[in-house]
């Protein structure tokens, strides 16, 4: 099967359950937004996929191959992580050269060209780079690998607007020619909203929803008006949250938009992804 399959994965830290029997798949060839609040279990799951930590129960399969301690997935999967795992005393260019030895699918020329685009000095040691440029280095490493599955954990942290734009450009430029699955774990939902095709939302160690971005944007909407009218409208519908502004009430809903009754003073407006996730994860918190 062409996918990263997460099967019934559970991970506990002492008495905290970080992941609770999580099962879903990242299908091949899509760009995913992997979203969730801090401590929702995102990093834990990414670390399990990347064989950095082990699941207590369940397993992860990459194209049907178990990912745990298995060199067969070495050329298939790469994870750019927020944590700095790279050797700090090595120069950037030496990191690239070692990656070329480690991976068959590493494009050394491309790495140097991309470094030039970002104006990254390849003669610097990793530890001498600013936080932003350390992130850039890690992004270049990931972009220069032609693996089938690439995971970006908070990719644009510490990058300025120009570098973010450049990163998204490069990501999309390669995506079509390469046949890849890109998984972006991030807090900056609005920034990736147009890029991601499908969303996986995780909260409190469980998958809250997996849905195509289009469907989410089509089915998520906001109703506003007098509290009484809003409550009448919302009866029997899937409301994921409310906001109140004096006597004005806003309700956030998921599902088919029902026609507003004739002469209604209610207003319908679209709900963006950011709002959707805030409301969904708030609901989980109550």
């Amino acid at each position: 099967m062409n996918a990263i399959q997460i099967k019934n994965v559970t991970k506990r830290y002492h008495d905290v359950t970080a992941l609770d029997h999580v099962s879903f798949s990242f299908a091949f060839g899509k760009i995913y937004g992997f979203l969730g609040r801090n401590g929702a279990g995102k990093s834990t799951l990414i670390n399990i996929i990347a064989n950095r930590i082990f699941a207590d129960e369940g397993e992860v399969l990459v194209d049907g191959i178990p990912a745990r301690e298995n060199m067969l997935v070495h050329e298939k999967l790469f994870c750019m992580s927020e944590a700095d795992l790279y050797e700090k005393n090595l120069k950037v260019k030496d990191h690239f050269k070692w990656m070329q030895r480690f991976y068959d699918c590493f494009d050394l020329d491309k790495a140097f060209q991309t470094a030039e685009k970002f104006e990254l000095d390849v003669n610097q040691k990793f530890k001498a780079l600013s936080k932003g440029y350390q992130s850039i280095f890690k992004l270049i490493a990931a972009l220069s690998l032609n693996v089938r599955y690439v995971i970006f954990d908070e990719p644009v942290l510490g990058l300025d607007a120009n570098h973010r734009e450049l990163f998204y450009d490069l990501l999309l430029r390669d995506f079509e020619t390469r046949e890849q699955t890109i998984i972006i774990a991030t807090h900056l939902i609005e920034e990736v909203a147009n890029i991601i095709e499908e969303v996986v939302l995780i909260d409190k160690g469980k998958v809250l929803l997996q849905e195509s971005t289009d469907t989410l944007l089509e089915t998520g909407y906001c109703i506003s008006g007098l509290a009484q009218d809003v409550d009448d409208y919302c009866r029997g519908k899937n409301v994921i949250g409310y906001d109140e502004l004096g006597s004005l009430k806003l309700a956030y809903l998921l599902g088919e938009k029902a026609q507003l009754p004739q002469g209604s003073h209610l207003q319908i407006s679209p709900m963006n992804l950011q709002k959707l996730f805030v409301k969904l994860t708030e609901k989980g918190g109550n």
Binding site: F175, I195, E197
Partner: peptide, 13 residues
Amino acid sequence: NEISVLLNINPHT
């Protein structure tokens, strides 16, 4: 691809 890169939009969209 050109449009996707220009507008930062998923090429499938």
